[in-house]
Design a protein around this nucleic acid. Structure first.
Lengths: 96, 96
DNA sequence: TATATTTGGTTTATAAAATAAACTGTTTTA
DNA sequence: TAAAACAGTTTATTTTATAAACCAAATATA
């Protein structure tokens, strides 16, 4: 009847991050922060979780001496996102 | 960019309950429990929250001496569900 | 040239949520 | 007449989300 909703994606901020990353080759921390409107702390935590799950890959570089955190979605991340969207539909497509 | 996701609906079980109620005139506790696969305790708590938010109306009757909890979605509940679905799309419709 | 502010984050603490476990009262079954 | 089952509720525990506090470097300010 209802499919499981991947708890890692069923979070407003993490879903927004994935949504952004899926449409783009890569994105840095500042970009994600601006687009999502999240606080830096919250974003940092959620990026870590996505990274630990293998849904994104994070690369910490420097632009000069300022840190630069680059994020990319992984194939597993894309698959998980697609599965999540599919699962969600079991909750939404009830009416004609 | 991203619309707020009503936290009351952004919960797997509450969303499932709303999803069921939106397609039906009324449903009782047992029906909702079976369809969602939730534990009674969890369902009880989430029904309360939806009820307190005014998204559903709960009527506690008796079938003989056995309690019977009937739930119906309210117009506000329908509106909230529709808004939630609309907001969700801002997270999903990124790709063509 | 100190010093205050901003940038780009991380770590830690707190509040809120989801969930499970334990409990209540009735009712059926063995 | 126990014991199991039904229909829930309440309480406790675990997990999450979020914010607050912090850090190091860079830049602006006086």
């Amino acid at each position: 009847m209802f499919k499981e909703l991947d708890p890692l994606l069923h979070s407003q901020l993490r879903l927004a991050v994935m949504s952004l990353l899926i449409g783009v080759e890569e994105a840095d921390f500042v970009f994600l922060k601006e687009k999502t409107g999240a606080t830096a702390g919250n974003l940092s935590v959620q990026i870590d979780k996505l990274s630990e799950a293998g849904y994104i890959r994070v690369e910490k570089t420097f632009a000069g001496k300022m840190p630069r955190t680059l994020c990319r979605i992984t194939p597993e991340g894309i698959a998980a996102f697609d599965a999540y969207v599919k699962a969600l539909k079991s909750y939404l497509n009830i009416r004609k």
